[in-house]
Amino acid sequence: MSEQSTWQVTGMTCGHCAASVSEEIREIPGVEDVQVTVETGAVVVTSAAPLERSAVDAAVAEAGYTLV
């Protein structure tokens, strides 16, 4: 059964920002889907198991943004 978690990311302003964040989060093992809403900074992640905040934080930082 899949898990869904919502994270808040600051600094995104466009579709390219969303694509960068999505691409990095998709590299976390077990991630099945990533939906980013640039206007609110919401990132909804569907994964095979609950994600560690540290893994999401590292992926978001790699994309150049900040996890709230």
Rank of each mutant, 00 (worst) to 15 (best):
G41F: 05
P50R: 01
V38K: 03
L67H: 02
A42H: 07
A18P: 11
T40G: 00
W7H: 09
V31D: 01
E27Y: 00
E23L: 09
G11P: 00
A63S: 06
M12I: 10
Q8K: 14
D33N: 13
Q8L: 15
Q8N: 14
T37S: 15
A49D: 11
V36W: 03
E39W: 02
A61S: 09
D33S: 13
A61E: 08
V21W: 03
R53V: 15
E62L: 03
G15C: 14
C14G: 09
V68A: 13
S5Q: 15
C17Y: 09
A48S: 12
V43P: 04
G11Q: 11
E23V: 07
R26G: 12
W7N: 08
S47A: 15
A42E: 12
P50W: 00
M12W: 11
V43G: 01
V31L: 01
T46S: 13
E32P: 00
T40I: 06
G11L: 11
V21K: 02
T66Q: 07
T37Y: 05
E3R: 13
G11S: 07
S2I: 13
A18I: 15
V31W: 03
A55D: 11
Q8M: 14
D33F: 08
V60R: 01
W7F: 12
V44G: 04
E52V: 08
V21P: 04
T13D: 07
V44H: 04
V9T: 06
Q8D: 11
V60K: 00
V56D: 01
H16P: 08
S20E: 14
S54P: 01
V45H: 01
V21I: 12
E27M: 13
C14Q: 05
L67G: 02
V36K: 01
S20T: 14
V45Y: 03
E52M: 03
G15W: 14
S54Q: 05
V45G: 08
R26Q: 13
T37E: 12
A61I: 02
V60H: 02
D57S: 09
E27V: 14
A55Q: 10
A55I: 06
